[in-house]
Amino acid sequence: MIRLILSRLGQGIITLFVLVTLTFFLVRAMPGSPYTDEKKIPEHTLKRMKAYTGLDQPVPVQYARYLKNVILHQDLGDLIRRDGVKVSEIIGESFPVSLGLGVLSIGIALIIGIPAGVIAAVRKNTALDFSCLAAAMLGICLPSFVIGPLLAVTAGLGLKSLNVAGWSSPSDWILPAITLGLINAAYLARLARGGMLDVLSQDYIRTARAKGASPSRIVIRHALRGGLIPAVAFIGPAFAGMISGSFVIETIFQIPGMGQHFVNAATDREFFLIQGLVLFYGFLIVGANLLADLVQIALNPRLRSA
């Protein structure tokens, strides 16, 4: 076990290094520049601006400097378009917001998705099955840029105590978390239903059933462990996706989260911010995968020997 974790850590570091290097060169291959502006910046001014950020240097020099700053000084650099703002500040401020929203919406997704999927599997091909699934699937049959505004207009404008957008009171978390949660609830329900059905027809479940164990005991004691593997395998990527991909939700509900930076940094060509975000995100993914692997090992004894 410990050897496994250590080797995963080593791989993680290599992964991050490759990731940083790739990103560094990819962002510099993009058309346009961090200095693109509707009103063109005069040439002599542009020269000074580039000298300040070091972008006037040859790319290999920039790369060496960047690695040195990151590794030796843990310095991810400054924003180019925003005066005197550090990349680490942006990440430090926005990540807790995204994390909170992500945890809450994953919670909502689990509460809706897993029971719906399990009930649908246990009552396979009954009206209950179909109604559970249909309800769970709402979240993917309408895009978030429809569900979000719909919730805002109905609940937000309708209820005096709910704001349509903003991030000042705890009640502001509700609508965005529901919107995000609904999407993932659909995935979890479908994956849980399929996984449960796979397990319920396995021999050991038949054996348990033949022994006369009660149906609820079979589901809870025996089937859930194996049946939730696909759903659990999905939570890692889903969570990562929520951190980087919640741009739409963030703009609809005016949330100071991380998703908008992934989009804006790319469109603004904020080189250091993109690199910093990718590095941070890479950390999360390496960590989350490690965690997901551990959970899977815990859920499935067969994997332990592998």
């Binding site: 505004p149 207009v153 937000g156 404008l157 704001n163 349509v164 957008a165 903003g166 609809i252 005016q254």
Partner: peptide, 11 residues
């Protein structure tokens, strides 16, 4: 669009 909703919601 969010801005307009915030206005109409008294924000």
């Amino acid at each position: 669009y969010t801005e307009a909703r915030m206005f109409r919601d008294g924000q």
